[in-house]
Design a protein around this nucleic acid. Sequence first.
RNA 1: CGGAGCGUGGCCUAGCGGCUUAGGGCGUCUGGUUUGGGACCAGAAGAUCGAGGGUUCAAAUCCCUCCGCUCCGACCA
Length: 430
Amino acid sequence: MGKAKRIKVKQSILFTKTKKDISSDEISKNAQLLMRAGFIYKEMAGVYDLLSLGLRVMNKINGIIREEINQIGGQEIFMSSLQDKTIWEKTNRWSDQIVDNWFKTKLKNKSELGLGFTHEEPLARLMKNYISSYKDLPLYIYQIQTKFRNEKRAKSGIMRAREFLMKDLYSFTSSREELDLFYEKAKQAYINIFQKCGIGKITYLTFASGGTFSKYSHEFQTISDAGEDIIYLDENRKLAVNKEVMTDEVLDDIGLNRKNLVEKKSIEVGNIFKQQARFSEPLELNFIDKDGQKKPVIMGAYGIGPGRLMGTVVEVRNDDQGIIWPKEITPYQIHLLEIFSKNKAVTAKAEEIYNTLQENGIEVLYDDRREIRAGEKFYDADLIGIPIQLILGEKNLNLGKCEIKYRDTREIVVIGIKDLLKVVQEFYQD
RNA sequence: CGGAGCGUGGCCUAGCGGCUUAGGGCGUCUGGUUUGGGACCAGAAGAUCGAGGGUUCAAAUCCCUCCGCUCCGACCA
């Protein structure tokens, strides 16, 4: 009575289950592991659900993104998926000949709608209501929202889906100089995001096509054989160029030397580009500058696919036993494995440790399934991939000790229970 | 969108005109035993053989159409 009920995160009641085998149809490592470990469920080709564990990872990734984007002045909104075709006609992006992966639908009255694959058009129109003077600028607006792309061929598990989450940030500035300034900030924010998601060391800033808007855009490419892109990387300068745009002229221009470059397969985890007035002009998103002149707002767009990011992390951080989550985006911080014993005191002690950890803000997944043998729990824990496994067996508990297994190195250390909290907190600090 | 391959309980598959009431293994569920790296025993549930149409006395099996899945390529603003 009067005692607040804590939410129990016990594996015996977690609705997801691990699987030894999944359909041989799923070839890609990321989807195989995420499906086997119970993070996602496949609805159909290119369409996946996030289950309890998967959603926790996704929320952490999104948290990191929000933190970094808010830091550089981003303001979060959430826009609709249903799109009015008239604005897309103004920018010449409604036609299936121009944009071939639209999902289109109709209202009952037969008028056509699109399911958004990006949001420049509706956001530019929206911003007309909020931007009229240079005093209203700059603005940095972003969202983490569902996108639909009717890919002719979904592939690579969750890496190229037909429905997926995207963090899309748009900058609205009064000049190219102001855009350039923000662009550099965004670049740094992206570097921080990938760093925190545990793929910083193998993710490289890459020159890519600027499309019709500008000379180059930048992609963030993570080295992986599962990637669809090919980049040429200067490992010393940590700079790369996408194969799509690599010519001697481009290399000269960006100051890379062909003989220092190595070819790598990579996954595009982020893309930033300067759109200039590509959308503001046709949509008449203008402002009155200090000199009294009407000018188009200068735009930039900055995308990250959190789902693809999750897939990429799994793709580059796994071993023969399963996933190895980085500490920042692990679904739980500790996987507590209670080893079966007839002695009820073991369960009582495990509960006590579990409660202590939770009270200290540690996220614990408690494998309390009593009918399951130790080996099975070990296999499950390795597959799920939480960085620290806390193994509680009767012998150690009687000595006032417990075991900690680090997932990435598979190193096991025995420590005193009294030191447990400190060890865990040290592991997770910074 | 071009090319290729494949659809048999949740997964892997056997059967490829009649010997099938579609068989096995894994998993799942129940009971028991066991309990430190996916144990063992007993029992049970679960499939209109992707869908529709045809050929035939007879179709999971042969033919046609459609749907779905996977891979290669193209595409990826």
